[in-house]
Computed example of a mutant assay.
Amino acid sequence: MQLDSKVTRRHVRSVGQDRWVVSFLPGRTLSLEQARAALRVADDLDELREAAAVLGLTLLELVGLATMESSGERLWSLKEAAHDVASAAAQHGRSGSR
């Protein structure tokens, strides 16, 4: 028996004894509930990837930024980070020349 994703080409295949393998998780055998969850996640990721592209981000950037904000971490822009690095380098240069 095989279950196919409704959105992608991913699939889940029965290997007997109520165990399943997922096409993108090689070497793992899962329960049916776990296998269905894996397919759901794969489908959701494809939808998120499309949304990220609309925003001009990669999937990993979108997930990382959303995760950071939801956990309350401070987001630094690249400009702020570059300024911090330049300031630290300048201070280190001054202390090293004494």
Rank of each mutant, 00 (worst) to 15 (best):
F24N: 05
R94D: 05
E47M: 07
E73C: 08
E50Y: 02
Q17F: 08
T67I: 07
D44V: 11
Q34N: 14
L75W: 02
D84V: 11
E47C: 02
E80I: 01
K79G: 09
Q91M: 02
A51Y: 09
H83S: 10
L3W: 08
E33M: 07
G64C: 13
H92W: 08
L60R: 14
R10H: 15
A35M: 03
L45T: 02
L55P: 02
M68D: 11
T8H: 07
E69G: 10
A86W: 03
R13N: 06
D43Y: 01
V7G: 02
R10I: 02
D84G: 12
L39F: 07
A35L: 03
L25C: 07
A42T: 01
M1P: 07
V21D: 03
R9L: 11
V21L: 03
A38L: 04
A88Q: 10
L3I: 15
V21P: 00
L57I: 04
H92L: 11
M1G: 12
F24Y: 15
Q17Y: 10
M1D: 13
S14A: 15
M1F: 12
L39T: 11
L39V: 14
E33K: 13
R49K: 14
A89L: 14
E61V: 09
L62W: 01
Q17I: 05
D4E: 13
A35T: 08
H11I: 01
A90L: 12
A42V: 01
H83Y: 06
L30N: 03
A90Q: 12
P26K: 08
E33L: 11
A52T: 08
R28W: 10
H83C: 03
G56F: 04
Q34L: 06
K79C: 02
A37R: 12
L30H: 06
S5F: 00
L48H: 10
A86G: 00
R74N: 02
L45H: 10
L45I: 03
A90D: 09
V41L: 14
R74S: 06
S70K: 10
F24H: 13
Q17K: 15
A81R: 12
G72Q: 04
E80N: 03
E69H: 11
A66D: 05
S95N: 10
G27F: 02
A42G: 06
L32V: 08
A82F: 00
A52E: 05
M68T: 09
S14C: 13
A86Q: 09
S23C: 05
Q91K: 09
D84W: 08
E80H: 03
